[in-house]
């Protein structure tokens, strides 16, 4: 019995040590820096809440925050359900279905650098695929400079993000579907449940572990979004597509304001924490004890 008592601690030992050194320590370091003024080169000076006050008066912070919220909403509304639909649709025992799953998965295999490059070509105002197609269809008036029109640039970028994100959630749901034993489905069919009933009453509850994860990562990914913005527009034109992670990067590493960048990081961290933990709290509250 004693053995069993100590087992979890033995299992957690290495993971906890690694995590403490490489992840938790840097987070505390960042929190500490957020109260300082630091150029990244000499010793930091403590300035209390100065950075946080600056933040509240910084219009770019609000632009970035608002854009992150756009990312969040669209990410939850599009790739998340779409990934589930794809997973359900392609989770069949038919020849060749693997090929379709692979096709949907493909965008996720591209690195963000490559992904951004491809979409930059597609969005190119003069020769890009979208505008060329529109012109060829006689819809020339609909052509837009997708990445330099400050009103739509953020949405153009979100489209790019949704593409691999859908593949991502599909994989999570596919993994979850393996927990749905075929007997359960057959039994439900025998009981005369129709398709919708089977989906809501049987499949969805069994998909719960996958869904918890898919929702959490969708929130995290949307709020932490960096690469697409950084490669495709660097937050431009004139900061209209800025998001918090990229703004933080620019402030810290291009403008030598590591203290302020750390403040942005802490605030972003807290926002994500808030969203994800409220969500997880609701879920775990109902978890049966074991």
């Amino acid at each position: 019995m004693n053995k069993r008592k100590f087992a979890p601690f033995k299992f957690l030992l290495i993971p906890v040590i690694l995590y403490a050194i490489w992840v938790i320590a840097p987070i505390f370091y960042t929190i500490f820096l957020s109260f300082t003024q630091w150029d990244g080169l000499t010793a930091p000076t403590f300035i209390g809440l100065g950075n946080y006050v600056d933040l509240l008066n910084d219009p770019t912070f609000y632009t970035a925050l608002f854009n992150n919220i756009k990312w969040l909403f669209i990410y939850v509304l599009v790739p998340l359900p779409l990934g589930l639909v794809f997973a359900l649709f392609f989770n069949r025992k038919l020849p060749g279905v693997k090929i379709f799953k692979t096709a949907i998965y493909l965008p996720l295999t591209l690195s963000f650098v490559v992904l951004s490059q491809i979409w930059t070509w597609i969005y190119q105002p003069k020769y890009g695929a979208i505008n060329v197609t529109l012109k060829a269809l006689g819809l020339g008036e609909l052509t837009v400079a997708w990445l330099s029109n400050s009103d739509i640039v953020t949405y153009s970028l979100i489209v790019v993000g949704c593409w691999p994100q859908t593949a991502y959630t599909m994989v999570l749901f596919l993994a979850g579907l393996q927990n749905v034993p075929t007997e359960v489905m057959e039994a439900a069919k025998v009981d005369g449940a129709n398709k919708w009933q089977r989906f809501w009453k049987v499949i969805l509850p069994l998909l719960k572990p996958a869904t918890i994860i898919a929702v959490a990562v969708t929130i995290i990914q949307s709020l932490r979004m960096f690469a697409i913005v950084n490669v495709m527009t660097r937050g431009g034109p004139f900061r209209s597509s800025e998001v918090l992670a990229n703004y933080m990067y620019v402030e810290g590493f291009k403008n030598y304001s590591m203290g302020y960048a750390s403040t942005l990081a802490v605030v972003l961290f807290l926002i994500i924490l808030l969203f994800v933990f409220i969500y997880l709290y609701q879920i775990f509250k109902t978890e049966v004890e074991y």
Binding site: R224, F253, M258, F277
Partner: peptide, 30 residues
């Protein structure tokens, strides 16, 4: 360990693991 054993701070440790993943990791460069 976190799924199948009952012990004090179980949820806390899980929470820390999840939270650590939320930091915008560019910040961890230095």
């Amino acid at each position: 360990a976190l799924a199948k054993y009952r012990f004090k701070y179980n949820k806390l440790i899980l929470g820390i693991f999840i939270a650590g993943n939320m930091i915008p990791f560019q910040m961890m460069m230095f």
